[in-house]
């Protein structure tokens, strides 16, 4: 029982990262039908920007709570900005080009980000300052840290905020409209380019939060960290039904739990096998993913 609880909390923690990153994949796909292969690296860039800010502030002996908040907010703003710049210069010129061109460009952006960080920060691991203690509490025999609880609640709050943003604001409604019919959205007077940029900003900012969280949780970050995490988050998005926001959230948590339980009860060497087997199984039974629905056909 205690082991189960331990694994459950660990799974929800890593699942939170995947969910936050999967949201970026799914939102961008929903709107521009692009699998943004650079998104995992956006997450990595967010982790590095957060690390830079946090290290600087820690050196100034700022209280850790404020330092952390500033690091998260700055990482979100900067990474969001980078996402917008990438969209503007790499993807926007190709929006009406064949799908393959923009897909290959995304791979190029991914390489550019990885090598850019490699140039600036070097090939080694950077260590997040130990601002947050490893303290925690024991419940039902399971050792749970405050960091885990913080990460889980913080990402749940962000997902709730995103849901409200998408469903209750004009910008969010415009995003959903754009996902259905870009030309019709233009006819409503919606500045499509701006909505697309906002989508990239929001998706990248969420990935940045995941990056900082990952840094705090595992303490070490590296320029290549975005690859495998990005792949699993993409899997989460597909599992939930790509283009579907609640699907990405659920998919992320499911992948996190699968990862934790398979590592705990089977072997961590089997994690990827199990994760991808579940993905394949789901897609065989329900090709649109768990939450994906066929959009009502227009008459």
């Amino acid at each position: 029982m205690s082991e189960f609880l331990q694994l459950l909390v660990a799974g929800l923690t890593t699942g939170s990262f995947y969910a936050l990153i999967a949201l970026g994949y799914t939102m961008v796909y929903g709107i521009v039908r692009l699998i943004n292969f650079a998104h995992g690296d956006i997450f990595m860039v967010g982790a590095f920007l957060g690390w830079t800010v946090l290290s600087a502030l820690a050196a100034m002996h700022m209280p850790w709570g404020i330092a952390l908040l500033l690091a998260v907010l700055l990482a979100m703003a900067l990474t969001g900005g980078i996402g917008v710049v990438i969209e503007r210069f790499a993807y926007q010129p190709l929006l009406s080009a064949p799908r393959l061109s923009i897909l290959i460009t995304a791979l190029g952006v991914s390489l550019a980000l990885e090598n850019g960080v490699l140039l600036i920060y070097g090939p080694g691991f950077e260590t997040y300052p130990h601002l947050v203690s490893t303290a925690g509490f024991v419940i039902g025999g399971a050792q749970i840290s405050y960091v885990q609880i913080g990460i889980i609640f913080c990402s749940l709050a962000l997902m709730a905020a995103l849901y409200l943003f998408v469903h209750r604001t004009f910008m969010g409604t415009a995003m959903r409209a754009l996902a259905v019919d870009r030309d019709a959205a233009r006819l409503m007077g919606i500045d499509v380019e701006r909505v697309i940029q906002t989508t990239f900003f929001v998706g990248s900012a969420l990935a940045a939060v995941a990056g900082v969280m990952e840094g705090l949780y595992y303490t070490e970050i590296n320029f290549f960290m975005g690859f495998i995490v990005g792949l699993r988050a993409f899997t989460a998005a597909v599992l939930g039904g790509i283009g579907n926001i609640p699907g990405a959230m659920a998919g992320g948590l499911i992948i996190g739990l699968l990862e934790a339980f398979s590592a705990g009860y089977v072997s961590s060497r089997w994690t990827d096998v199990i994760v991808f087997a579940v993905l394949i199984g789901t897609l065989v039974i329900k090709p649109t993913g768990l939450f994906g629905e066929r959009v009502v056909e227009r008459m």
């Binding site: 409209a177 019919d181 409503m188 007077g189 227009r298």
Partner: peptide, 20 residues
């Protein structure tokens, strides 16, 4: 062919008409 935002409600479609 109308090009409605089919997965959105009637109300949301009209609200988008007033986006500006």
């Amino acid at each position: 062919r109308r090009r409605l935002f089919s997965p959105l409600t009637v109300e949301e479609n009209l609200r988008l008409g007033g986006y500006l």
